[in-house]
């Protein structure tokens, strides 16, 4: 890989030295680690058997999460269209392109959890904050993919439609849309799947859904109920993934 033997061996020595230094600086507290292992054992033993007796609470949380994911995906999918179009350099004028790219970069800078904390502060606890968080994340994700697809598509079909005297909106629906539609739908479905997973996470900071229920069980030491929720989340995510793969397979 690296031609120069001096450089190659030098880099290797540096890498080993860095590893040794970083391990040395960790200050692993062995007594705390062993206490932690003990506590982990206690928690896991109290998790079994999982307690599904409060299933109505569970169903309510799951339903809320799925509703949040569905609403956020749908709104995000719609809002991503203007953002994506504006963020494609080959069809948007320069100032609009830069503004749209700025929005995309800004929204991608922050992790969902940070956005969720902000929205919980603004709108209070509950699913509204969660939906808004997921909308922001979806617009930014789908919008970016859409913009990149438009930039990578062939200009020839667009050129031919322009040459017929078609106006810009018609160029969009004939020259652009047919080229990017399958990918756009695929990405949106993928985002629905991702939103189902993320809806459980944003709940932990109070933005509604099953995550909020899970967070509450941990603070009340209801570990058997926690496990029931975790198992349900696994099932939910599995179903979401399965559904998303199935739909995307059919889109090809």
């Amino acid at each position: 890989m690296i031609e120069n033997p001096l450089l190659r061996h030098g880099l290797l020595v540096l890498a080993v030295m860095y590893l040794a230094w970083s391990l040395g600086s960790l200050e692993i507290d062995w007594s705390r680690t062993s206490q932690g292992a003990e506590r982990a054992g206690r928690i896991f033993s109290r998790m079994f058997p999982p307690d599904f007796s409060r299933w109505s609470l569970l169903v309510r949380g799951v339903t809320e999460s799925v509703e949040m994911a569905l609403a956020a995906s749908f709104i995000g999918m719609i809002l991503a269209i203007p953002v994506g179009l504006c963020a494609a350099s080959n069809i948007a004028p320069r100032p609009i392109y830069l503004a749209a790219r700025g929005i995309l970069v800004l929204t991608r800078t922050f992790h969902e959890v940070i956005i969720a904390i902000l929205f919980v502060k603004i709108f209070g606890f509950g699913p509204l904050a969660g939906v808004l968080t997921l909308v922001v994340a979806s617009v930014s994700f789908i919008g970016k993919m859409l913009a990149e697809d438009i930039e990578n598509m062939g200009s020839q079909q667009m050129e031919a439609i322009r040459a017929t005297g078609a106006s810009f909106p018609k160029v969009l629906i004939y020259g652009v849309m047919p080229q990017i539609l399958p990918r756009y739908l695929g990405v949106s479905i993928y985002r629905l799947d991702a939103n189902i997973r993320h809806s459980t996470v944003v709940g932990i900071v109070g933005a509604g859904g099953i995550g909020q229920t899970l967070s509450a069980t941990f603070s009340r030491y209801d570990y058997d109920f926690s496990l029931a929720i975790l198992l349900t989340i696994i099932g939910l995510v599995f179903l979401g993934e399965f559904f998303s793969n199935w739909v995307r397979g059919r889109l090809r």
Binding site: Q157, E159, A160, A163, T164, G165, G175, P178
Partner: peptide, 30 residues
């Protein structure tokens, strides 16, 4: 003015995912 000028391309420049009929009719988009 472009409506009155038909253009034919080296790479045909058809809209690949649309039908032949949709492509022909796209000549009327103006």
């Amino acid at each position: 003015a472009r409506r009155r000028m038909g253009m034919i391309f080296q790479e045909y420049n058809l809209v690949e995912r649309l039908t032949v009929m949709e492509n022909v009719l796209s000549g009327r988009l103006g």
